[in-house]
Computed example of a mutant assay.
Amino acid sequence: MRLVLACVGRLKAGAERDLVTRYLDRIRPAGRPLGLNACDMIEIPESAARRADDRMAEEGAALLAALPSGAGLMVLDPRGKSLSSPDFARRIAVERDGGLAALAFVIGGADGLAEAVRARASDLIAYGSATFPHQLVRVMLAEQIYRAVTILAGHPYHRA
């Protein structure tokens, strides 16, 4: 199953991009024996629309258009549920074992995600009630995807 990290906005060169790249690079060798391919990152530009609803709609349409055909979606949303790392890994395994060809993890823009994107999601997940900068959320999500792969592989990286 192909993994995709799809985000609104582009990370500039620096510590956050380096960390995301480090985790995404680790996924390929760890995930291959598990039937999980590389985790590609798709970055779409932020909308320049004046109204928040228009920005969300434009960004949502661009995200959906950029995703692999038929991809499942796990969306970060403050209204979502908090998953433990083992539960997150199990959700990925369920999608993989169900024959899904691609699974996308989606991070919206500053205004949130369009309802069209949220409606397509199999899961809405949240990192608690605190607000985090999008750059850090991207690092945290890349790390959690890598951690999920190591959990599925039985690797000692994850310690409860």
Rank of each mutant, 00 (worst) to 15 (best):
Ala13Tyr: 06
Val149Asn: 01
Met41Gln: 13
Asp111Tyr: 12
Val106Ala: 06
Arg138Phe: 05
Arg147Gly: 07
Arg90Val: 11
Leu113Pro: 01
Arg50Met: 14
Met74His: 03
Arg159Tyr: 03
Tyr146Val: 09
Glu95Ile: 15
Ile44Gly: 02
Gly112Val: 07
Ala101Phe: 04
Tyr146Gly: 02
Ser69Trp: 07
Ala148Lys: 04
Met56Asn: 13
Ala15Phe: 12
Ala153Arg: 10
His134Ser: 14
Ala13Gln: 13
Ala61Gln: 07
Val117Ile: 05
Asp54Trp: 09
Arg50Ile: 02
Asp54Tyr: 04
Asp77Trp: 12
Ala160Arg: 10
Val106Phe: 07
Val117Glu: 02
Ala65Arg: 15
Ala49Gln: 15
Gly154Glu: 06
Ala148Gln: 08
Leu63Cys: 10
Thr21Pro: 01
Met56Leu: 15
Arg118Val: 15
Arg51Met: 13
Ala13Met: 08
Leu152Arg: 09
Leu103Arg: 02
Ala89Thr: 11
Pro133Glu: 08
Gly31Leu: 05
Ile125Leu: 04
Ala101Gly: 05
Ala62Phe: 01
Val8Asp: 03
Ser85His: 05
Arg55Glu: 10
Pro133Ile: 03
Glu16Lys: 08
Val8Lys: 02
Thr150Ile: 11
Glu59Phe: 05
Leu100Pro: 00
Ala71Tyr: 12
Ser84Asp: 05
Ala101Leu: 09
Ile44His: 00
Asp53Arg: 11
Arg159Ala: 13
Glu46Gln: 11
Leu36Arg: 00
Ala102Thr: 11
Gly9His: 09
Ala48Cys: 08
Val75His: 07
Phe105Cys: 02
His158Glu: 02
Lys12Arg: 15
Arg2Ala: 12
Met140Gly: 07
Ala121Met: 12
Ala15Val: 11
Asp25Asn: 05
Leu73Gly: 02
Ile42Trp: 01
Ala57Asn: 08
Val75Ser: 04
Ala89Ser: 11
Gly9Gln: 09
Val149Arg: 00
